[in-house]
Amino acid sequence: MSDDVIRVVLNGEPVTLPAAADDTLLEVLRRERVHSTRESCGQGVCGTCTVLVDGRSVASCILLAHLADDTELETAEGLGLPGHLGVVQEAFVAEAGFQCGFCTPGMVLAATELLRRNPTPTDDEIRHHLAGNLCRCGAYPEILAAVRHAARLLAEEA
C-alpha cells in the first residue's frame, strides 16, 4: 500500500500510474495529461476536478490518489472525444450548455452520474445534483436545458 503507484481502470483501460502517498488524484491525472480534469478552487467546492470513481462523482482535488487505488475512473475523455461525443456531451453542445467551457467536463460528469441513477430527473433534482458545480460564466439555464436534453436523448436510445 505504500507503493509508489496506483492501479486503476482509466476510461476502460487498466493502467498503473505513479502516485506518491501525498498526491491527490487530480495531480496524478494531470501528470497523465488527462486535461479535462481541472483544478480551480482546490477545496472540493467548485466541481471542475470532478472524476467518476466507480461511478460516483468525487472531487479529485481533495481525494488522496491512494484512496482511489483499485477503482474504475471515468473522466470526460472517457465519455467521448471530438467526432465521437457521448450523448450527454452532444446535449451540452446542442443546448450551448457552456460559455468558456472550463466547468464543462465536471458538469458533464455530474450530469452523467445523475442520469445513470435517475433517467427522468425533475428540474429540482437536476438543480440539487448540480448545486456544487459552479459555472462562473453563469450558463446555468442552458446547462439545465442540456441535462433535460440528455435525458430525452437517452430515453430515445433506450
Binding site: 472540493g44 467546492v45 466541481g47 470532478t50 460516483r56 462523482s57 468525487v58 472531487a59 481525494l63 455530474a110 452520474e113 445534483h129 448545486a131 456544487g132 458545480n133
Partner: peptide, 9 residues
C-alpha cells in the same frame, strides 16, 4: 451538506 462529490466520499 457540501455537495454531492463530498457526500459521495
Amino acid at each position: 451538506l457540501g455537495n454531492v462529490r463530498v457526500r459521495n466520499v
